[in-house]
């Protein structure tokens, strides 16, 4: 946690348009938790994946302008990005400028043309979810829950870039968003596809490829009986939500799973209204799922199913051996 819970905030382009609900709910929840988000003055696009595909050095320089401005923003040495793609690009540029000295020098040569300079590695780049679970912590969040999301079965969808490459979280099967949802009172379904790709920019390039990737995730969430998918990235939300109809038409399926931002669900559990949290802009309406909050869920089917006497023990870390008498 930074001093006074203050962070430098980089919203990114998507949060100004397709992911507006994410920006709205982030700011509202931050206010509720007494976090201060100082938005970088005059920030620019992070380049997404596109710029890096065409010309790497200008792409790194594009990102580095944001880092240089972030360092000038003051208030805290930590930059927080709610968008996973922005988070990756900021973090990667920050790390590479530090690790690969020649690259760092070249980027600074470019920055100098705009009167800027940035020392790679001098800021810490973090994802919004990381700040929520690490700095604020589950206990403090739990203490704010006034309207538990009881009865809502959510599939926690992390996507790629919050866990890969090399963020310190489990790269295949993270559980911190699961734990956050449990803290809010929701029921978390097992979700093997939780870190698989949403299709990214493929929706613009090859519909065939993108729709198949989206289908896999929706099918998995449906197979495990999720009422809603909860995400932490505007691109993931856009692909799973806005293209759900196209996927249904393409594959003759009838998925109808709303896709929400974790900040929206936090706000709901804190007792904030749906209007304050940007609900209503989703393409697959969230209301039917939200109306389930408060219901009693039928007793959970145990996974793996309850074992009888013949069953072999599941792997347990040594030392936590349960005594079975």
């Amino acid at each position: 946690m930074t001093e006074n819970g203050t962070y430098v905030y980089y919203p990114g382009c998507s949060l100004q348009s397709t992911g507006r609900a994410y920006d709205t709910s982030t700011k509202r929840v931050a206010q509720h938790l007494n976090l201060t988000l100082n938005e970088i003055e005059d920030w620019n696009c992070c380049g997404a994946t596109e710029y890096f595909s065409v010309n790497a050095l200008p792409a790194y320089s594009l990102v580095a302008r944001n880092l240089a401005l972030a360092a000038e923003t003051g208030g805290a040495p930590e930059v927080v990005a709610p968008c996973s793609a922005c988070y990756l690009n900021l973090r990667k540029t920050n790390d590479y400028m530090h690790k690969f000295k020649k690259l760092g020098a070249q980027v600074n040569q470019a920055l100098a043309a705009g009167g800027l300079h940035y020392e790679g590695g001098s800021l810490r780049v973090r994802h919004l979810l990381d700040i929520i679970v690490q700095d604020v912590g589950y206990d403090a969040i739990g203490a704010q829950v006034t309207r538990p999301l009881q009865g809502l079965r959510v599939a926690p969808y992390y996507g790629c870039l919050i866990v890969r490459p090399d963020t310190g979280y489990n790269t295949e099967y993270p559980t911190h968003l699961d734990a956050l949802m449990t803290t809010l009172g929701a029921t978390v379904v097992d979700f093997p596809m939780k870190t698989h790709c949403c299709g990214g920019h493929m929706t613009q390039i090859s519909e065939e490829v993108a729709y198949e990737l989206i289908r896999r995730i929706l099918k998995n969430a449906a197979d495990y009986g999720a009422d809603a998918i909860v995400t932490l990235c505007p691109m993931c939300q856009l692909n799973l939500d806005a293209y759900q109809g196209q996927v249904n038409r393409t594959f003759n399926t009838d998925f109808n799973i709303p896709v929400m931002f974790f900040t929206q669900l936090m706000g709901l559990a804190f007792g904030l209204s749906t209007d304050e949290l940007g609900f209503g802009s989703e393409m697959v309406p969230a209301m039917p799922a939200l109306s389930r909050i408060g219901r009693e869920l039928p007793e959970e089917r145990e996974r793996p199913k309850r074992r009888d006497k013949q069953a072999l023990p599941m792997p347990t870390p040594r030392g936590s051996g349960r005594s079975e008498s």
Partner: peptide
């Protein structure tokens, strides 16, 4: 707002690249 600054940075980066 500061489009000239960004343009200058990108042009220099492209020159180096």
């Amino acid at each position: 707002r500061n489009m000239p600054q960004l343009t200058a940075i990108l042009n220099e980066a492209k020159r180096i690249a």
